[in-house]
Amino acid sequence: MTLAEILASLFPAGHDVVQDRGILLGSGPLKDGGHITVIGVADRTPLGIDDLVRLSGHVLKAVEAGGRDPILVLIDSDSQRMSKRDELLGLNEFLAHLAKCLLLADMQAHHTVGLLYGHSAAGAFIATAMSTRTLVALPGATPVVMDLPSMSKVTKLTIETLQEKAKSTPVFAPGLDNLAQTGAVLAIWDDKRSLADQLQTVLGEAAAGDRRDRLGKERKGRPKAADIAERVRELALHPA
């Protein structure tokens, strides 16, 4: 689906989402009569410091306005922008700041939903879609934590060998199914159905709190994370 088709399906009654230099800002009406704030990245834009303050500013404005409007994060991005200037000026702070704004918003009753409709990678993925409470994806989305050519270079294994190894585990290779299995992506939406309906459904369903490690265990994508985290938490709270 194109971005225009996605927005049309999400907001059949119209919206005021504007795209400017790869960044999406705006809002739209929900089916139940409510309203949802929208931020996003389009056209596989690499996420740099100048873009990040625009996104975080929009989220903060929504939180400051009060109320309980949810926030939708639409993502088709590259990785974080790789440049001397971005790193010189503290890209890590700008990425973390956006993530913190989204996390604060969610804790202050603005349910955050990420919709991965294209690409995303590395730090850009963490600061945007992964910093929402509920991350869903459209079929054909292509999230990449580490691409196989780069992995091949570092591990000195051929891409064929890596592809072979990837058949036995979702833990390292790129792709939507692998990330869903590790628990990062809650659900893959049906692009034949109304996205507005599906959005309304997840807004009603997903409980607060981070359940991704338990999901990863249920789906057999991350065998140990949930148990280790819970054991440490227990030991820390109830020292022997």
């Binding site: 590395a122 992964m130 570092v154 591990t155 833990v171 390292f172 290779a173 990330l179 991704r212 990863g216």
Partner: peptide
Amino acid sequence: LQEANAGELSISE
């Protein structure tokens, strides 16, 4: 690298 998806997700968690 060898467990990139699990590692990335752990950063977010």
